[in-house]
Design a protein around this nucleic acid. Structure first.
Lengths: 338, 338
DNA sequence: CTGAAAGCGCTTACAG
DNA sequence: CTGAAAGCGCTTACAG
């Protein structure tokens, strides 16, 4: 089933048939109808490879997820992101190519693959530290959009949540509701999201006239186990604490377990606010107050920015910051207990 | 950077250069070395579109995930499956094309896409009811492998877990440890995995000489909320129950919440065993006893079967059943309480 | 608005 | 073992 046959059936040239397929305006309506009918009758579908060969476009987008398994599986973050990306890609007929390198070796090959021209653009999520990948891809002229923030000094488009604002709102609420000793379990500090939420915590304390105490801060790595561990450390250092702002719901679930085991009642003895509003927030007892962000929307926005920078090659990088919202539930005494 | 240039630099014809790239044995070692050096020097990477056009292979595999959002996000099932699939695909240079149709319309287009020859084979996960897709794809000559079981009467290769055996083991353990009234929360009964686990539950009761009671069975849909609801129904019908076999960890987490709220102590008053051994099993208090299955391995096996059926077109369908293993933790009184 | 023709980069009989 | 040549299915200046 080729264009040639469609053209023959419709009684036009291959060129005209091609124009109809590609929606070119300069086709006589009658010819157009003939071709459309032929396409429908024959069930013609263009050959992507042949098209790519001449257009030099693959019509596919690479989505790179390079995260250790622990986080990948515990956290609904990645399915949500993929869902948003897929929803934005599929109506445009773009393929989502999923890349999950899981070793140094695969990471090396990944970069070669991405720069080899097999894809039209790259979506990068969940970067750590000073990852050189976004900068290198950008240097090679590959359109890139980062979910979260690109490393310092790398000027590529990105979509981020208002991590800072969300943290400020959460901690301000804890203070306003009368808590005296507000601790925090931060995300990994080699990730922008981790750093920004910690900054928000500090800012809220500062602007409430509270003094900062580094021993009230413990670092986690966005896994449930690391949240539990951080909570144990905090309890030991500050048995008197009566509130914790935890930088992810998954870590908050871990912290909750530890508080339970230590026979601290939540929210009576200790109030907790998480971050993400992931489904996990509803699985805990009591349900978690949390900062809502829409990861699916983040995925959709990433696609939008990427398509823009594919279409208009050397436009300046854009950035989109998505709002976050404080959701009150039982874990901080402000909402329903189940 | 084309083969042509590589050939020129190496002083051979394009045909010979191509043979080296494709590892053909009939190339003079000296010529081979020359070409390899040229490739390395120039950083040559073959153009996939041009290659596909002539080989009629896309070197990409479609992975279809058609599941309502609720399950998709709460359950680590899909990330694990994708991770296993990706791990098996990437060393062979095959692209993983992720397809997540989320409407009737997208579902229709999906089928067209899959049969249009853009991909070499399809992996289908998490089928419901009498889904016609696997049968149709098979009818169109598209290699297909199903994760779980294909619908009755559809003869395609599949990889499944020993759901039945796992359920028998779990329920037998509950009976052996002295529980009198063992209820179950099943998975959706339009899914093979749901049905098989329920059959296992019944078989274990039967072979222990217990009588079956339909009112001890409640159907869930593999989500946390449905697990909670089913638990409420069971408690109402059978306040005396002292054990529940729940067909997924996520549903078990929901059931646990309800038991907590009803002030039933787990495992003292009621023992629970889940299914999956997902990370969720460690997040609950007490941690869940569960039936372990390896979803990542399932993904890898699916790829293996698919590649076999791509290479050897009309071979008979194969099936692989992966073993499951009962893991004892605090929730049924057999293991650690935290 | 339309068609003949070139050309995208590769693989693979075919003849030697 | 090697090369000249055909051909995969499409898009797109170009000339009309």
């Amino acid at each position: 089933m080729t264009l040639e046959e469609v053209a023959r059936v419709a009684g036009v040239s291959r060129a005209t048939a091609s124009r109809v397929v590609n929606g070119s305006p300069k086709v006589n309506p009658q010819a157009r109808r003939g071709v459309e009918r032929a396409i429908a009758r024959l069930g013609y579908v263009p050959n992507r490879a042949a098209r790519s060969l001449v257009t030099r476009r693959s019509d596919s987008i690479g989505v790179v997820i390079r995260e250790p398994t622990a986080r990948l599986f515990g956290d609904p973050y990645f399915p949500q992101l993929l869902s948003g990306i897929s929803a934005a890609l599929s109506p445009r007929g773009l393929q989502l190519i999923l890349l999950m390198p899981r070793s140094r070796e695969e990471d090396r090959r990944l970069e070669q693959y991405l720069t080899a021209g097999h894809i039209d653009g790259v979506l990068l999520a969940s970067l750590h530290g000073n990852d050189p990948l976004p900068g290198r891809l950008d240097g090679d002229g590959i359109p890139v959009v980062v979910g979260g923030r690109p490393p310092e000094g790398v000027r590529v488009s990105f979509v981020d949540n208002d991590n800072y604002g969300g943290a400020v709102a959460a901690v301000s609420h804890l203070i306003a509701s009368g808590r005296h000793t507000v601790a925090t379990i931060s995300g990994p500090l080699d990730m922008e999201a981790g750093v920004a939420r910690l900054r928000g915590y500090r800012e809220a304390l500062r602007s409430a006239g509270r003094s900062l105490d580094p021993s009230l801060e413990a670092e986690g790595e966005f896994t449930q186990e690391s949240g539990a561990q951080a909570m144990r450390a905090l309890l030991q250092r500050h048995p008197e604490l009566d509130a914790v702002f935890v930088a992810s719901d998954l870590m908050a679930a871990g912290a909750l377990q530890v508080l339970n085991a230590a026979e601290r009642r939540v929210p009576d003895d200790v109030a907790i606010v998480g971050f993400d509003d992931s489904p996990i927030a509803l699985m805990t007892v009591p349900p978690l107050s949390t900062v809502r962000q829409s990861i699916e929307e983040m995925g959709r926005e990433m696609v939008r920015l990427l398509l823009e920078s594919i279409d208009e090659r050397d436009r300046a990088p854009r950035q989109v910051i998505l709002v976050t919202e404080l959701i009150l539930r039982g874990s901080c005494g402000g909402g329903p207990m189940s």
